[in-house]
Design a protein around this nucleic acid. Structure first.
Lengths: 309, 309
DNA sequence: TTCATTTATTGTCCAGGACAAAGTGTTGAC
DNA sequence: GTCAACACTTTGTCCTGGACAATAAATGAA
């Protein structure tokens, strides 16, 4: 039904490839110039047309880059070596009960929505919210991220998984939400960090701990965080960083924000991404582990007098 | 530790302006060349630095363009004329009850979370889900978007509003979700479109209409949409585009996807963003209005025989 | 080891030319 | 007067190839 009008060259224009791979047009062109890959055809007007195979390979390369490899190496490799790298394990994961997580992973891989949803609620009832978040959800998110970057899992399965988790969190939280506790904590991420699940996990833990969370969603510019913190009169601002976020950028952002934030408002940073931050930052509390969050809360409460747990 | 070295020129680099305004770097540069606006400073390295005032004006211009004006005219105008245009109502938005929307906007502006949440549920109960979505939520999202780009509203208020809406949708949907109806429709957006609210609105309408929605969340690459469509055996794929998404890119993406998608699976595109697409695309059903969705569903049902409404 | 300095890598920016798609205006047939 | 066909204008995207700063890697000193 389609396109007998198209000549025999066919493929995606550069804008589509940018959208699909997340590599900017500039990058695509400069790779071609420097490394001789990709090698798009040209249409009648001299514009690039990328073969689907090459687009696929570009996605693969992008994924490997997220795992830490550098383009110079990757673009020199042939297909065989590339796939070999893809298989290579990055370093043992720190999950406690691997067996059970494997069961979960199977559900994710077969995108069995109903079973996944059922399992979520069963496990939630069994462990309670805090235990469920720490022992199941958090490790599972790590596993899914790893599996994705290892190409064992498609974007589709990963999205479906996120949607189910999000749905579950929001349902559970909706029934507990109207809290009046303290401290009041602002929850968001810096621009560029789009992962919401970290925020939802923290919100869940906070609601249980009788904290009043103000959820802003992801990607709030720094000056708006500042404004929100003052208008909503929060006691602390808590940012979440996924492992994908550059640790340099994270540290810089935290410094910037700390500088502008009134001294009376604490600044906390959590998530897998803060593990990569080496140096402590003055006036910023780094919380790579869940336990750190509890410690931080306890500390705040003792410092601010009469407030129970 | 940073930057007493910064000179007295300051402003946003071109990449930030692209993100803020939605105008591509190429467009920004070509406007400067052709129309003499904007007129960014340069940093030590000769790179553009846009003054916040100009960025604001660019956002304003972008919004007017979305309303149908052409850049050639807009860029020739001075501030006064621009603001005059801005005040002028565009073909009177189709909101039935402007008065009530104003009340809502006041709640958004004062970020009164509790009142907003209460109002949501009250109005939902009064109008039913479909009526609520069409008469309140959709116009309100447009209003908030407009107010934001007119700088009457901060990012913070906009985020808070989105979070409340999302929470509400997910709560409501959680209680109705396990559906087995047909057709089965895959819901997602293309990479680059991050707005989720459109998807949630459509999901809500579909659940009421006894459709089985598969929600993938935003930003799925085309080949993954394809894979999901086949694995989940859907009858149609429905994409949502916000007004921020470039209509050229949207059209291109739809063409790309249509080409790869089996003929048996329909392709629908909804949201404010498709209004800007002029030409029809072969095999793609453009649904700028909610009514179009109902029509599309009805059409599908008559074509596929015995299935009630 | 650990830290500081040099060197290599890599993404983004720039200029300015070109062109096609979309919009606008004009003409003439009915 | 309406409408279709045509020419002209506007406008966004793509092109090349050069430059440079930010980051990572490698090297040397304490």
């Amino acid at each position: 039904m389609n396109t007998e009008t198209t000549s025999f060259v066919s493929g995606l224009p550069i804008a589509s490839v940018e959208r699909e791979t997340g590599l900017s047009k500039d990058t695509l062109r400069v790779w071609e110039r420097r490394y001789g890959f990709p090698t798009p055809e040209r249409d009648a007007n001299g514009e690039r047309l990328y073969a689907p195979t090459q687009v696929q390979r570009l996605t693969q390369i992008k994924r490997l880059m997220d795992r830490g490899y550098r383009p110079g190496k990757l673009l020199a490799l042939d297909d065989v070596a590339l796939i070999a790298l893809d298989e290579a394990r990055p370093g043992a994961l720190v999950t406690p009960n691997v067996l059970q997580l494997d069961t979960w992973m199977r559900l994710v891989k077969t995108h069995d929505s109903e079973a996944l949803q059922r399992q979520f609620y069963r496990e939630l009832a069994k462990r309670g919210l805090a235990g469920f978040v720490q022992d199941i959800v958090a490790p599972l998110i790590v596993r899914v991220g790893e599996a994705w970057s290892r190409n064992e899992l498609g974007v589709f399965e990963e999205h479906l998984f996120s949607q189910h988790l999000e749905k579950m969190f929001r349902t559970v939280l909706a029934n507990m939400s109207p809290q009046r506790g303290s401290p009041r904590v602002l929850l968001t991420t810096l621009s560029g960090e789009e992962h919401t699940l970290g925020l939802l996990m923290v919100e869940a833990l906070m609601v249980v701990e009788d904290v009043y969370p103000v959820l802003l969603g992801p990607q709030t510019p720094i000056d708006e965080i500042l404004r929100a913190a003052q208008l909503k009169q929060v006691d602390a601002v808590c940012l979440s960083f996924s492992s994908a976020y550059s640790s340099t950028l994270a540290a810089q952002g935290l410094r910037d924000l700390r500088q502008m934030l009134p001294a009376g408002i604490e600044l906390w940073a959590g998530g897998y991404g803060v593990k990569a931050i080496r140096k402590t930052i003055d006036g910023v509390c780094l919380m790579p582990e869940f336990q750190d969050l509890y410690d931080g809360l306890a500390k705040w409460r003792t410092e601010h007098g009469r407030r129970s747990a």
